[in-house]
Design a protein around this nucleic acid. Structure first.
Lengths: 225, 225
DNA sequence: CGTCTTATTGAGTTTAATCAAAGGGTGTGG
DNA sequence: CCACACCCTTTGATTAAACTCAATAAGACG
């Protein structure tokens, strides 16, 4: 198990299940605490306010597939039907707004146009999964890593200071998301650094040195360089 | 391009864009005629009544990913937002009920509970994509083919006569769906036949000879046999 | 019957997984 | 404050799986 320091809290009011709850429904989750488990009754949706969550499935043979990482602004737990279809936890101290399922269903009944919005959101999720499928089955290790780093860069809410970007998940999480082993992830990152496309100054962050090249690699319009 | 014989029609009334339309909104599409293209404005949803459709994306470098096959009872074109997110055509003479998008949106406004159903459908689509992702990135060729054949068997609406099952798509379609090459698909099918797990009596069909073994292979609880 | 398309089979290559070991940073305890 | 231990990461060598290139075989259709 992972050690972690005490999570910072904002306007704390009550403590519940290892998280701290504020008046606006935002709770603070300590690193590696769960949002929900596969099979649980769908009680809440979670809007990530700050931090990172990961959604994943674990298989009988021990293989794990990370389905998605959720960053600020993303909503998780939505579109599962009556029970959650995967496990979800946070990989850093994370502020998440807890939205009871019942309140969303009520809102849907009152405002039909909301339903269309939610359907569009679901459509977006499907489209994202489709793109990710293609990444998983059609791209090489370097293409996957390049595409992954680009998507991390695109999703940084904080201003891109200099170009030092946060990479909050560990290698095994990246591997399980991209369908690679940690060795291949590590080797590929080293290769990209050797190619002067990225830099890896510290654990938990990376720097893009040649954005154009990274894009070319991600799009696989470039075989070698 | 593909050649095809003239499609059979049911209660034909008018002809439009290469398809025949019946009074209940069911059109008959000739093999390899499109339902819609990526980027088109979302005008209709299509409920497959009989036949098979395929949804796919084509990439700049020529790679193609088949996202899904749709059989009788499946609805395609749904959950795309304002424009279709992939191409869709039929691979055999196919009867499809054309549902105008506007009529569905109207129905959603009148009957909010319908929205929840549609959301559940979308959730199911997301779950299906997730499972397929895992298949694509975690499973070996033999596991993918076994899982694919099982899903084909499960989706046969027609009574499973003897166990002779329809396999309506060609090898390249299977390959592009499973993230393999046609050579690997062919070799793997041959291997399964040699293992006495399936039979391949004719083009366009297959027979399950050992369902238990096929299930074991698909679940990858069995490495070799 | 001949041509064209699709499928199968074979040989060699490439990629990433696996097995194995060493390096580096963090935190704890002496 | 320093040393040790642990975990995560990197690097190396080998193996296995699927891809590529190439040729042959089998159907479908005119």
């Amino acid at each position: 198990m992972q050690r972690y320091s005490t999570a910072a809290t904002i306007t704390p009011q009550t403590s519940w299940m290892g998280s701290t709850i504020a008046s606006d429904g935002v709770r603070v989750f300590a690193p590696y605490s769960p949002l929900f488990h596969e099979g649980d009754t769908t009680a809440n949706f979670y809007e990530i306010v700050q931090g990172v969550a990961r959604a994943y499935k674990i298989f009988p043979d021990g293989r794990r597939q990370i389905i998605a990482f959720a960053f600020a602004g993303d909503i998780v737990g939505f579109g599962h039907g009556d029970t959650y279809r995967f496990d979800c936890d946070v990989i850093a101290a994370t502020h998440a707004r807890v939205i009871p399922r019942s309140s969303l269903l009520r809102a849907m009944r009152n405002r039909p146009e909301l339903s269309e919005k939610l359907l569009d959101m679901a459509a977006g999720a499907v489209a994202g999964m489709q793109d990710h499928s293609i990444l998983l089955c059609r791209k090489t290790a370097i293409e996957r890593i390049a595409a992954f780093l680009l998507s991390m860069a695109d999703r940084q809410v904080e201003p891109v200071t200099g170009r030092r970007l946060s990479l909050p998940m560990c290698r095994v999480d990246i591997a399980d998301f991209l369908g690679l082993t940690i060795e291949t992830v590590s080797r590929t990152l080293t290769k990209l650094r050797a190619m002067r496309v990225i830099d890896l100054p510290d654990r938990g962050c990376f720097v893009i040195r040649d954005l154009g090249q990274l894009r070319l690699l991600a799009e696989s319009e470039l075989g070698s360089a």
